[in-house]
Design a binder for these strands. Structure first.
Lengths: 193, 193
DNA sequence: AAAGCCTTGTACCGATCAGTACAATGTTGT
DNA sequence: ACAACATTGTACTGATCGGTACAAGGCTTT
């Protein structure tokens, strides 16, 4: 049973780690703060993540990617109703980012030099998001070229909404922007479907 | 003349400081790296910026704000031709952010806890950008409510384009997104003017 | 030249950084 | 109960952090 226990405890520390990285960034999150956030001592942290901060962030990224794959990408790629999948995506994303009060760890990693180590995963995350959304739009009869552009615009728009809402401290602006993005995609599906 | 020299040297260090903060973030930029970036020793830096890193960032923010006020906000607020002002804004912004290869210092500050000290200036920067763009659209006969929404969407969209382009390492995606945003604003002016 | 101020490099401060070592304490399997 | 192993807290490392002190040098003004 021991191998299972290890995985469980390691996994259960990820949400707290993610929250700490989210709020302070990769460089800004010290081991002391990570220890306090998780409730685990330094010894425990290095027991579960021998690679240190880098391995912790790697695990957090995989965890986030897993959540998105299940909750966002899969419905977009395999859902029967494109319009419903798009609507669900925006709802889930709004809840996940708490209307922009919660920052996108992946997006932030790409912004400064400290995150260059993870550039591969950052790139893959956004590429998959865009391609699965574009695929969904294509299922909704939107022409491939336009679908890709709209998907790119939507994913980019969500990231921008997070930046703006955080800067202004205003959840309403996030919701207005996301609402417009959703309408734009649904209109395209309506128009071509 | 001495007072003029002080201002000059302090001012001339700002671009290098801005670049360092841009690349490493506020927390990630160490005094050693700031010293190397500016070519000034620690003694000189603290001579020009007695308040340390915080005062340096404050000066960088004021410098950025001054540049935007002159190059972006003023034409939007006082330019005679709204469509031309909007076009110029997107061109200048694309050049300034190097098609997303260069990060927005102000936007990044709002994202993590380290930048909370500057939240007032961050908020003011985005608020003014949105309001001056909205005013420009209103001059172009776009109804006030719609003008504000479109302005919000454009500013947010630019920030998102930076995040996405940096993450993907793809300048083309920045240009595609910004092109769409520009068309959206120009269409609105055409439609109502 | 001499006095005064500006500028700069260097040495130093305590605090904190990421990471390691390891002994003490579980916990599990037999 | 006992042995093997997983987990944890604590103490430590050298490096680097932001910031200070200050003396040496340069420039300007008289």
């Amino acid at each position: 049973m021991s191998s299972k226990r290890i995985l469980t405890d390691r996994e259960s520390a990820l949400p707290a780690l993610a929250e700490a990285f989210r709020e302070h960034g990769f460089e800004g999150a010290s081991l002391a703060s990570l220890s306090k956030a998780t409730g685990l001592g330094k010894g425990s942290l290095y027991n579960f993540f021998p690679g240190g901060k880098e391995e912790m962030m790697e695990a957090v990224l995989e965890n986030i990617d897993g959540w998105f794959a299940k909750a966002i990408f899969a419905p977009l790629e395999h859902g029967p109703d494109p319009a419903a999948a798009v609507t669900a995506m925006f709802d889930d994303v709004t809840a996940y980012f708490r209307s922009g009060q919660r920052v996108c760890v992946v997006g932030c990693l790409g912004l400064n030099a400290a995150g260059e180590t993870f550039s591969g995963k950052v790139k893959a995350y956004f590429a998959r998001w865009i391609s699965s959304l574009a695929h969904c739009l294509e299922v909704g009869k939107v022409p491939p070229g336009l679908a890709l552009e709209l998907a790119e615009e939507a994913v980019s728009g969500i990231q921008g909404a997070i930046v703006l809402a955080r800067a202004l401290g205003d959840e309403a602006s996030f919701q207005r922007i996301v609402h417009r993005l959703r309408s734009s995609l649904l209109d395209a599906i309506d128009r071509h479907g």
